[in-house]
Amino acid sequence: MPRIPVTPHISIDEDEVEERFVRASGPGGQNVNKVSSAVELRFDVRHSPSLPAAVAERLERLAGSRLTQEGVIVIQAQEYRDQPRNREAALQRLLDLIRDATFVPKKRKPTKATFASKIRRLDGKTKRSGVKAARGRPKID
């Protein structure tokens, strides 16, 4: 079974990616009515044996509205007028999405504000307060 390389450590089987061809909207003249050049690519994240669990979880979060309730990512490509280029574009978008999911975000280490930064903040607030107070009507004694 041919495999599609995603990263040096991750590759997916070609049979895990399902393609469906539909008619594209937009320009194309008479050709648009005859040829199914748009591609709808489907990839089942939840049942993919090729992806580690952590990557699959991040991929589901990254997919957003492209993810169905069953856990299938649906990518549509119709920017080109010919089917092979749309197939390539859709597959490339899927691979980019999977690559983005392989990056583990760094844990944020909570830090405290420095004393100097607190002083700067309070000085700024005092100056701003003075500017706003000066905007009122002048007092006549």
Rank of each mutant, 00 (worst) to 15 (best):
Q92W: 05
V39W: 05
S48V: 03
Q30E: 07
Q69H: 15
L94P: 01
Q76K: 14
V39C: 15
S50R: 03
P52C: 03
S65K: 15
G64W: 11
F43G: 03
P52H: 05
L94E: 07
Q69C: 02
A63F: 05
H47W: 04
T68R: 08
V39M: 06
S48K: 00
R93W: 09
S37N: 14
V39E: 04
V35K: 12
R66C: 06
E60K: 11
Q78C: 00
I73S: 04
I73V: 15
Q76S: 13
A56K: 07
F43K: 08
V45P: 07
V39G: 07
Q69Y: 07
E60T: 10
L67C: 09
N33W: 08
I75N: 02
I73P: 01
D82P: 04
V32Y: 02
L95H: 02
G64L: 14
G29I: 05
Q30D: 06
V39P: 02
G64F: 12
L67G: 05
S37Y: 08
Q30V: 09
R58Y: 11
R42D: 01
I75M: 09
V72R: 09
H47G: 08
A63I: 13
L94T: 00
L94N: 01
Q30G: 09
G29W: 01
Y80I: 01
S50K: 02
D44V: 00
N86C: 02
E60G: 11
R87D: 00
E70C: 01
A63Q: 06
R87Y: 03
E70F: 06
R81C: 00
N86P: 02
R42W: 00
E79H: 11
V74A: 09
G64Y: 09
E79D: 14
L67F: 09
R42P: 00
N33I: 08
Q30C: 06
S36D: 15
A53Q: 07
A53C: 00
E70G: 05
R58G: 06
S50A: 10
V45D: 01
A63E: 10
Q78E: 13
R93D: 14
L94K: 05
I75E: 01
R66G: 01
R66M: 12
A53N: 01
R58L: 04
A38K: 14
A54S: 13
S65P: 04
V35A: 06
S50H: 05
V45Y: 09
